[in-house]
Amino acid sequence: MTNANLERRGTDRLRSVLAPLGVAAAAGAVFAIVGVVDPNEPGHYPTCPFLMLTGLYCPGCGTMRTIHALAHLDPVAALGLNPLALAMVPFLLFWWGRWMINAWRGRPRRTTLAHPAYLWAFLALVLVYWVVRNLPFGAFLAP
């Protein structure tokens, strides 16, 4: 390979990882902001619209406080605020890592995130979590 081809290949490789790196930068910025600006103090962030309108918790209620707890290296508190959000972190890191490696290797992007059966199962899990955390016996799931 000539130097021009190697240089072009390096530029193409760098360009292909810009999207995953941008997502990582945005996630890091959100993590840093929520880590610094405490969501436990009123007035910093808006109230969950679903909670405000119904008085019930949505599947995402407690996620910002979970991120804040993780930013302060307190996984036990994070688990108590939103266990589903905490359980999603390894999956999100896996999918992001797979995306980054495939982009680096120059493999084409997949148009599907996962097999549809997994996505339907995840949707069912979120719906069950949503209902159970609002029932008396599921109060331990409330933030």
Score class of each variant (00 low, 15 high):
residue 130 W to S: 11
residue 65 R to D: 08
residue 96 W to Y: 04
residue 131 V to N: 13
residue 28 G to S: 12
residue 15 R to V: 14
residue 40 N to D: 08
residue 91 F to I: 10
residue 23 V to K: 10
residue 46 P to M: 06
residue 110 R to S: 14
residue 129 Y to F: 15
residue 71 A to K: 02
residue 62 G to H: 08
residue 76 V to C: 02
residue 110 R to G: 14
residue 71 A to Q: 00
residue 30 V to G: 15
residue 48 C to Q: 00
residue 130 W to P: 09
residue 50 F to T: 03
residue 48 C to W: 08
residue 45 Y to V: 03
residue 117 A to P: 08
residue 92 L to P: 02
residue 101 I to K: 07
residue 140 F to T: 13
residue 53 L to I: 00
residue 66 T to P: 06
residue 18 L to V: 15
residue 138 G to M: 12
residue 129 Y to W: 14
residue 119 L to V: 14
residue 129 Y to N: 04
residue 41 E to G: 11
residue 56 L to Y: 13
residue 39 P to T: 08
residue 123 L to G: 15
residue 141 L to E: 08
residue 23 V to A: 15
residue 141 L to M: 13
residue 92 L to I: 14
residue 121 A to K: 02
residue 62 G to D: 03
residue 14 L to P: 02
residue 57 Y to T: 03
residue 112 T to C: 03
residue 92 L to F: 12
residue 8 R to C: 04
residue 44 H to L: 12
residue 138 G to F: 09
residue 2 T to W: 01
residue 44 H to G: 13
residue 5 N to I: 07
residue 72 H to C: 06
residue 97 G to M: 10
residue 109 R to M: 10
residue 38 D to Y: 06
residue 99 W to E: 11
residue 31 F to V: 08
residue 103 A to N: 05
residue 8 R to G: 05
residue 56 L to W: 04
residue 16 S to D: 14
residue 128 V to Y: 00
residue 111 T to R: 13
residue 143 P to W: 11
residue 143 P to E: 12
